[in-house]
Amino acid sequence: MKIKLNRIDNDYHFELKNERGHVTFIDSKAEVGGHDLAPSPMEYVLMGVAGCSAIDIISILKKQRQEITAYSAEVEGVRVPIDGAKPFKDIFVTVYLEGEIAEEKAKRAAQLSFEKYCSVSKTLEPTAKVTYKVVVNNKEV
């Protein structure tokens, strides 16, 4: 896996491209010298957790013939200062599912994703605690 980064302006706005040609951008907040034209690198980490777990959970539930009509998630990260850096200490994920989905299957799919399959969560595991909850058809399970 390889990513190429190119600077766009004289500050902190960058274009990133993967080997398959997909393009995205990174910037920093205006208060630290950026132009706030794109998510920050740390916001992309949270997006990675959301996307990785979504792929896992949907895949697991599809294999179990569960009918998902809507999927969304909210991810919140808590950072702590350590030697000049501010890594994530805690990451909280709420998964929202709608459809003809057995609650226990949804709960198990999330457990498998966050505790076994999600490479992003597993990468963060040594330094950040990732916790989650699952809401199926507006009911926390």
Rank of each mutant, 00 (worst) to 15 (best):
F25I: 00
F25E: 04
F25P: 02
I26C: 13
I26Y: 08
I26M: 14
D27H: 15
D27F: 11
A30V: 12
V32G: 11
V32W: 09
G33I: 08
G33Y: 14
H35S: 12
H35T: 14
D36Q: 11
D36R: 15
D36N: 15
A38P: 04
A38T: 02
P39Q: 08
S40G: 08
E43G: 05
V45H: 04
M47K: 11
A50H: 06
C52K: 00
A54Y: 10
I55H: 12
I55Y: 14
I57R: 00
I58W: 02
S59F: 07
I60A: 11
I60T: 10
L61I: 12
L61F: 00
K63V: 04
K63D: 05
K63L: 02
Q64C: 15
R65D: 08
R65I: 13
Q66C: 08
E67V: 07
I68L: 06
I68V: 06
I68H: 09
T69A: 01
Y71Q: 08
Y71R: 11
V75D: 01
V75S: 04
E76P: 14
V78E: 10
R79I: 05
P81Q: 05
I82P: 14
D83P: 01
D83R: 03
A85Q: 09
K89Y: 03
K89C: 06
D90L: 04
F92C: 13
V95I: 06
V95R: 02
V95T: 07
V95M: 03
Y96I: 03
L97K: 12
E98P: 03
E98L: 09
E98R: 12
E98Q: 14
G99A: 09
I101R: 02
E104F: 11
K105I: 05
K107P: 06
A109E: 01
A109Y: 11
Q111H: 03
Q111D: 15
Q111F: 15
S113L: 15
S113K: 03
S113P: 04
K116A: 00
Y117T: 02
Y117A: 02
Y117N: 01
S119N: 03
S121V: 08
K122I: 09
T123Q: 15
T123G: 13
